[in-house]
Every structure is written in structure tokens, then in C-alpha cells.
Design a binder for these strands. Structure first.
Length: 196
DNA sequence: GAATCGATGGTCT
DNA sequence: GACCATCGATTCT
């Protein structure tokens, strides 16, 4: 199973988001491997995207979005949750793909424990849920997901056919009409681990 | 099921 | 001091 390289992420964000469907997110936790298949993502593109954390320009918090593709942008939200993004496009242009849901593959028992024994359908079906299940927090902010020794990385798996891929506006975002309507959420139709 | 609401703290103006 | 790319419990229909 080959890892996704930096070249994969250094492209148009919508293309990266679409092609991340079906790929594996892998976490090495104390030697144990936890992984899941990506089933839902959202794209955040440039400072003109009102829903993006970069819409007000560069700050200390969103700096990783302006950095090198293939790095993580992990932010803390609502006083208790973490969310994981993968940075895309060229350095200097703020863009990223938010990983919104996974289908658990390896280390499911560990995920159940980390998620307080909740039903399996709720283990990784949300951006903050999957971070809790895979023990992803701000220690991974700006981490290089393409480094050979990365503890968090992406692996190539089967591509998702167009007829199996759904496209919709993003969830939970604020902004003007165009922002709310932008079809920048991608998901695997009918998958049991979607965030909603 | 759907709608509503509180939790809880980092970040930025 | 306001806001927040969420979650889970509670309170309805």
C-alpha cells in the first residue's frame, strides 16, 4: 500500500478533496495502527472563501494553511474539539481539505475505547469524532503527513467512481449566499459513517 | 425523528 | 468580549 505523496496534495483543492474519497487515513499510536477510509471531506480555498479560517488573512492559528502542501492543519474549536485538515496547493496560498468522516478499518477496539464505547456508527462520523478516535490533537498541527516517519499519514486505496460520489454544500459554515451554496463537500453515497 | 441548547476555551478585534 | 468548519443530551412532536 503506497502513501500519498506531496505531489498529490500540491494540486487544485477540489481535485484533491474529490480524490481523497476512498483513501486511507492512518495513525500510528504507540506502535498500534489505527486507520479508516475517508468517506466525507470539505474543501476550503483561498482568502476569498468566507467560510475559510483564512478569510481574514494570515494569523498565527491559520498559518499552516499558507504552508507546504501535505502538512496537517489541526485546530481546536468550541472549547473541546479538534478538527483535521490536509493542506493543499502551493505554499503561500491558503487552502486545505477538512476530513469530516471515516469508515473505521484497523484498530477499531482502540477507537471504541477512545470514544467511550459509543456505537460504531458514531466512532468516526464527524470531524471532531474522528480526531478523538485517532488521537489527533494540536500536536499534529503543521505536522508533515508525507514524512517517512510520520505518525499520521495517508495511504492509497481504491478510487471512488463518479456515480458513487456525492457533492453538496458544506456543513456548518457561515457566509454570503455564494459561500453557503458552494458545492465543496464530497462524500461516498450511502456510506454508514457520514457525519449526517 | 427534529429542534434546541449548553459545554468550554482558544483566538482575534 | 464575541465568535466558533462540533458534539451529545434534552426536549419537544
Amino acid at each position: 500500500m503506497s502513501r500519498l505523496s506531496r505531489d498529490f496534495f500540491a494540486r487544485d483543492t477540489l481535485a484533491v478533496a474529490r480524490e481523497l474519497l476512498g483513501q486511507r487515513l492512518v495513525r500510528n499510536l504507540d506502535g498500534k495502527q489505527l486507520s479508516g477510509r475517508i468517506v466525507e471531506v470539505e474543501a476550503y480555498i483561498g482568502e476569498d472563501d468566507q467560510a475559510s479560517h483564512a478569510s481574514c488573512g494570515r494569523t498565527q492559528r491559520n498559518a499552516p494553511m499558507y504552508g507546504s502542501p501535505g502538512h496537517a492543519y489541526v485546530y481546536f474549536i468550541y472549547g473541546m474539539h479538534h478538527c483535521l485538515n490536509v493542506v493543499t496547493e502551493r505554499e503561500g496560498f491558503p487552502a486545505a481539505v477538512l476530513i469530516r468522516a471515516l469508515e473505521p478499518l484497523e484498530g477499531v477496539e482502540e477507537m471504541r475505547a477512545r470514544r467511550g464505547g459509543r456505537p460504531d456508527a458514531q466512532l468516526t462520523s464527524g470531524p471532531a469524532r474522528l480526531c478523538q478516535a485517532l488521537a489527533v490533537d494540536r500536536r499534529f498541527d503543521d505536522a508533515d503527513l508525507c514524512a517517512p516517519d510520520a505518525l499520521l499519514f495517508l495511504e492509497r486505496d481504491a478510487a471512488i467512481l463518479d456515480e458513487a460520489a456525492g457533492i453538496s454544500p458544506r456543513i456548518g459554515v457561515r457566509g454570503d449566499e455564494a459561500t453557503l451554496a458552494a458545492p465543496w463537500r464530497f462524500y461516498i453515497r450511502g456510506n454508514g459513517y457520514l457525519s449526517r
